[in-house]
Every structure is written in C-alpha cells, then in structure tokens.
Amino acid sequence: MLELKGIYKTFNRGTVNEKKAIDGLDLTLEDGDFVTVIGGNGAGKSTTLNLIAGVYPVDAGTIRLNGVNITNLPEHKRAKYLGRVFQDPMMGTAATMGIEENLALAYRRGKSRGLSYGINNEERKLYREKLAILGLGLEDRMTSKVGLLSGGQRQALTLLMATLQKPDLLLLDEHTAALDPKTADKVLQITESIVARDNLTTLMVTHNMKNAIQYGNRLIMMDAGRVVVDIRGEEKKNLTVRDLLDKFNVESDRMLLSE
C-alpha cells in the first residue's frame, strides 16, 4: 500500500521561475491497484512519480510504502521497492551493455552487489524464458548490446527489468509516449499482462485518455499539483472518453490538446 500525505514540492523557489509542482497532494493506493494518471502538462504527474522514486526530495509531507516511511531514503535505496519505466526509451537501459547484462543488473535490485559472478547460467535460463514471453525474439539475442534495439524493444526490456524482482510499486511514466501507436499498443499489452500476472500495484502516467480508461481499475486526474478526479470500480469500467470530457469539462480543453 502506498500512502502520500500532504506532499508539497516547489521548484526554483524564490526565483522568477518558481513553479509550484505539487500542492498538498494526498493519495492512497491499495495493494493491487492499477491506477492510470492523466492531467495536462505541468499538472504534476511526472513530479509525483519522481518524488515517490526519490529523484528529488519533497518539501513537506510523507511517503509510506507498505508501512515503511521512505520519504528520506536516497533514490538507490528506494529502488529496492520500486520498478520504474521512463518516457525516454534511452533512460531505462544501459546501451553499451548486453541484454542479459542489463537483466542481471535488474535481477540484483535491492540486493548487495559483491564479488560473485555478475551473471550465471541459471539466471541466463530464467532470462531466456522471461524474454520469450515478450514475444519480440529477444531471447535469441541475449548478448546483443541494448543500443542496437528499437525504442519499443527497449521499453519492453525495461518493463521486464522493472518487474524481474517483484516490486512493491510499479511506476510507469508515460512509458509508451515515445513509441509509434502500434508499438505503444504492444508495450501496453505486455504491461497489462505482467501487472495482472504478478498482481502489481501500479501507477501509470499517460497522455492518452483512451488508454487511461482501457487499462487499470482506477483513474485519477491531476491538476495544479493535486488529485482533482478519482474514479474506480464499476464507474471506471463503464467510463468512456465522452463521459470523461462531459463530466470534467473544466479540464478537458487542455486534455484534448494533449490527447
């Protein structure tokens, strides 16, 4: 369970570029919640994810994950609990290292890294199986450098890396935004199947309203650093894009622009 309480974050405080990104955010995710997050540019979606991941510290408020207060943990220590996929396909993998080496790095997330072999044959078998599930043929290119893969392949691989050790929380920051529609669909399908299989608690930021409605059991809309809409259960299931636009007219202009 993720609990965000009274989170505030302002960038460039005291300068002309001061930007209040998160303004008293409260959010609780139940175990197994798959939450899609929508909102206009600057609504605070990505900032929220980055605050949870510890990319920068909060100004005020607490972040608890499964009862553990992670508010002041450095980024690399929080990584133990989190799986992350970024918007930029270049960001989630090491381009100059092989596919299996990247997976081996992810396999050791949250564990100590000592002088034992960085990768062993037993793991290789596991990776081969996991890669085969993606259906991209990567299982036959285990030693290829990740830099040779396409954006979609890299995002699928990053997704696999993020979930290789089951995370307490999966953070997806517009992870299909840089992909063409067909590839984006494929990556979203993979996402859904992995989340369903492992019953992962997930926060998925997206600019695509259709995807936000189609995936997950709960949808939140952010504006000016807060949650302004929170829909779940039956209501979420029956939601349409038109509903969303009609219901929340105030937000829709900006949303439409970015759809």
Partner: peptide, 9 residues
C-alpha cells in the same frame, strides 16, 4: 547510464 543504475538500486 547513471539514471538506470539508480533505478536499479
């Protein structure tokens, strides 16, 4: 890739 490294703990 330092970003990826931090994300992997």
């Amino acid at each position: 890739n330092p970003n990826m490294s931090r994300a992997q703990g």
